[in-house]
Nucleic acid binder design. Structure first.
Lengths: 339, 339
DNA sequence: CGGACTGCTGTAAACGTTCTCAACAATCGA
DNA sequence: TCGATTGTTGAGAACGTTTACAGCAGTCCG
């Protein structure tokens, strides 16, 4: 009836002031054609009281929230913050808000987050998972809102997907090291049961074959995690054990860790040991030596995923699409390229 | 009435199945005491249909969204992602979702974001602004929801605030360089009209005085932005012009830029020129040499701000509080400390 | 001049919750 | 046996929108 105790103006406040019905007020504010006179009156009234529509009421009625969510494994990995930036850009152009969720790469958390979508506080989700299981596929199929995946869904999952070709990327990195004259090329991987872990391992093996190397398991090391600390530890073991002349690291954080380990072992980079990372994060430009790395197109993938998601939200019937982004080797100092 | 075409179960679906009223169903699901038998029936019905309450309806009615927002200048600066991580943690423990907004340090954007809060899609906002104006103070006073500020509000603004003492921090950094034997200590600042810019400059001047130095304007350089690129450019100018034996940089990104500039100028760090940054971001641990820096307690400040915000949301009448976090010098390699 | 349009408008019914209130049954004390 | 008390329930009114529908002027055509 009257002004709310709260003081926040509602559509009714505006309508009352403009001497029209709430319906008319609503129409004006949604740009539906009305008599110029009503239009003017409503506009003025709205401006006078500083009316802003209530998001909850609007979404309750229209079944749209204007929000999308991004669920990622780890806020502190710069590759994901790059993705966040990219998503935020597209979302904003679309007039959507962005909700962030960090899953700590925990499958259980990812699944319960998917279940939570039933609350419909969001119009769609971009899910970046390191380890996509059948349970994910089911949860997504049963999900209340559209989901776009960045990563590698299980075969046959009907989801909009953006994938990187990290197997190729890994192979390129190793071939590059070979071309730089390295002959004992080690591989510092992250957890192998993750999708990136297994794909990158395959790429490494592909390249070994292509270069005519024997497989040597002593050149193989696995870090507990895709982090700098784990990378440093694992690299230390590796350097101590196998004396490689190059290390291909499964991501930039591991590479930064390896750099520290090499320094601790008084090995020159790239002199004694060359290093290649993966992801082309902002870190790669600030280390010394700067880091040769493989750009898997993180920002680009995030952008594409967002666009796929928005397209599906607009047209839910749409056939799921999969797009791939090709890797690109970025040569900097750490690989000791002669050029 | 019947199952929605949508298929999503509502409270009515549950009530119908359990043979009770929606009111009873609601009570059960909100943990209000009911007859054990109804409780059981409702629980079972809810589980059977996989009921999840609708967020929009719930917030419309209860005037709570369970969401808080964080507005920050720049997603790609690791100090802010550290804050995001910290906020996400507290928010999650509180059962709140986190909305992210990047303002590009643009005052207009910050203000329009504040105005948007009238939509009430969020229970509160944590605002991190580099340049807090009177307009901000007004907008916050008129805001629809509580706001907590990380930074330096204008005097007299009645807002929950968490501030860093970056003036002290800056002075500590410079004194440290002096203690390391440096005598031509330059200052690489970011834009001076920002709060951090001006505070850090004051701190630098404080320290000069304390160490008994003359003020020398040639040791003074301002980068266009708090970024690596701007830092590198400005540092190059500085090194070329003034030959300092140390540079105190107003944040870690600038310091990383300075490191690159020094390298380009074939100056050893810390041998020829010592470097100190500010913020103690993750970057500081990965550069080579590792970066001496001043920890302004970013994560801690973010945590405190979130707690202040949540407390105010719970009790809006509460008197605004200001808490400060003291800086802490973190000595690493780049300052050439002899110890 | 009557009927069929056209152009706007207001009434009222959703959307899915929460919560006040009154109704009702059962228990108790006198 | 009756009134008061307690415990539990359902009807229904919010919350602030959007939108289907009907109504009511005018205009146009035959």
């Amino acid at each position: 009836m009257q002004q709310l105790p709260d003081g926040t103006p509602t559509l009714e406040t505006v309508a009352r002031l403009a001497n029209v019905s709430v319906a008319s007020a609503s129409r004006v504010l949604n740009g539906i054609k009305t008599h110029p006179e009503t239009l003017r009156r409503v506009r003025e009234a709205a401006a006078a009281v500083g009316y802003v529509p209530n998001a909850a009421a609007r979404s309750l009625r229209s079944r749209r929230t204007g929000q999308i969510a991004f669920a990622m494994p780890d806020v502190s990995n710069p590759i994901y913050t790059a993705m966040v930036g990219s998503i935020a850009l597209v979302a904003r152009a679309n007039g959507s808000r962005l909700i962030l969720h960090s899953t700590d790469a925990n499958t259980g958390d990812e699944l319960s987050f998917l279940a939570d979508l039933k609350q419909r506080y969001v119009d769609g989700l971009i899910l970046c998972s390191l380890d996509f299981t059948d349970a994910h596929a089911e949860a997504i199929a049963a999900s209340a809102v559209p989901v776009a995946v960045i990563g590698n869904p299980t075969k046959g999952a009907k989801v909009d997907t953006v994938r990187a070709n990290s197997r190729h990327g890994a192979a390129d990195a190793v071939k590059h090291l070979h071309a730089c004259g390295r002959r004992r090329i080690a591989f510092l991987n992250g957890p192998e049961r993750t999708a990136p872990g297994s794909a990158r391992k395959l790429g490494y093996l592909d390249a070994l074959r292509a270069c005519g190397f024997e497989r040597d398991d002593s050149l193989f090391e696995v870090a507990a995690d895709f982090t700098v600390e784990a990378g440093e530890e694992a690299a230390a073991r590796l350097l101590d054990r196998a004396r490689p002349d190059a290390i291909f690291c499964a991501n930039d954080l591991l590479a930064v860790g390896a750099l520290a380990a090499a320094r601790a072992a008084r090995l020159g980079v790239p002199g004694d040991v060359a290093l290649v990372g993966m992801d082309d994060t902002t870190l790669a430009r600030v280390t010394s030596p700067t880091l040769t790395t493989v750009d898997l197109g993180g920002a680009e993938r995030a952008r594409l995923a967002t666009e796929l998601l928005l397209a599906r939200i607009a047209r839910p019937g749409r056939r799921p699409r999969t797009v791939a982004v090709e890797p690109r080797l970025v040569v900097r100092e750490s690989s000791g390229a002669t050029s």
